[in-house]
Amino acid sequence: MEVESITSENDKLHVIIKGAHPAFVNAIRRIIMADLYIPAIDKVYIAENTSVLYDEIIAHRLSMIPLRGGENLNIPEKCSCNGKGCPFCEVALSLDVEAKENFSIVYSGRLKSEGNVYPVNNDIPIVKLNAGQKISLVAYARLGKGRYHAKWQPVSICVVKYEPVISINENCDLCGICVEKCLKKVLEIKENKLVVKSIWACSLCKVCEEVCPKAAIKVSYNDRSARLTLETTGSRTNEELLLMACNYLAQRCGELREIIKSIMEGVSNGKENTTN
C-alpha cells in the first residue's frame, strides 16, 4: 500500500491510496464519520431567555456549533463520574448577553469558555435580540462521536471512490463526440491523440462508451486503488482526523487480536484438560 498524493483545497483533503482494497479505505471512512471523539455542547442550563426563540431552539443551535480543543477531556462513559458530568469530562461555556438600547445579534464569539474548548468561528449567529431582550445560559460541552449524534460528526463529506480506468484503443478516429458528450470534461484531444485530462473527475457514467461510433473507448475501475476525500467541519483538521482514524483502527485491531488470542489459549487449554 502506498499513499500516492495528498492534496487539499479549501477545507477538503484528497488522499489517493494505491494498493489498498477500497474496503480497507472504507473502514477508515466509517471510523472518521462515526467513531472519533470530538467536543460538542450537550447540556444547556438556561437561566433567562426573553428572546424570540424557544429555549429548545437555542439549545439545538448551540449544540450544532463546531468546537475546537478538548483534547485533554475524559471520554464521559469512561470518566470516574460514570458519564454524569464532572470537570474532567465537561467544559462550561457561558453566554450572557443583554441588548440594552439597540437590536443586536449574539455571535458564537460571545460564548465564554472555562476550559480549552472554543467555537471554531466567532461569527456564527446564535440568536437575534431586540432592545430589552436578554439571554443568559451555561452550556456544557463534552466529547462524543458521530454514532451518538450528528453534532459530533467531525466531517461534512467523507467519501471513498474507486480509481476510474479509461482505456482507448486504436479504433479511435478522433471524432471528438466523446469529448463533447462527457459531462465531467474528462477527455481531451491533444496532439492528434485522445487523452484523459483529469481521471479522478470521471464519474464512471459511461456516456463516452455509448456515444463512441467505433467502440474505441472502455471505462472500468481499478479496485486496488481508492481516493478518500474528507471535509472537516472545523473541530479538527483533516490531517488530524485521518491520523486519529488510523490510530483507532490499529487500537481496535489490537483489542480483537488480544480477544482471539485469549480464546485460542482457552481452547488449547480445554483440549489438554480433556485429553488428561
Binding site: 426563540l53 450544532m64 468561528n121 456564527i124 440568536v127 466531517v155 461534512s156 463529506i157
Partner: peptide, 13 residues
C-alpha cells in the same frame, strides 16, 4: 426563522 448553523444534509458550517 434564523439561518441554520449547519447544512441540514451534509452538516457543513
Amino acid at each position: 426563522m434564523i439561518i441554520p448553523i449547519r447544512c441540514f444534509t451534509c452538516g457543513k458550517l
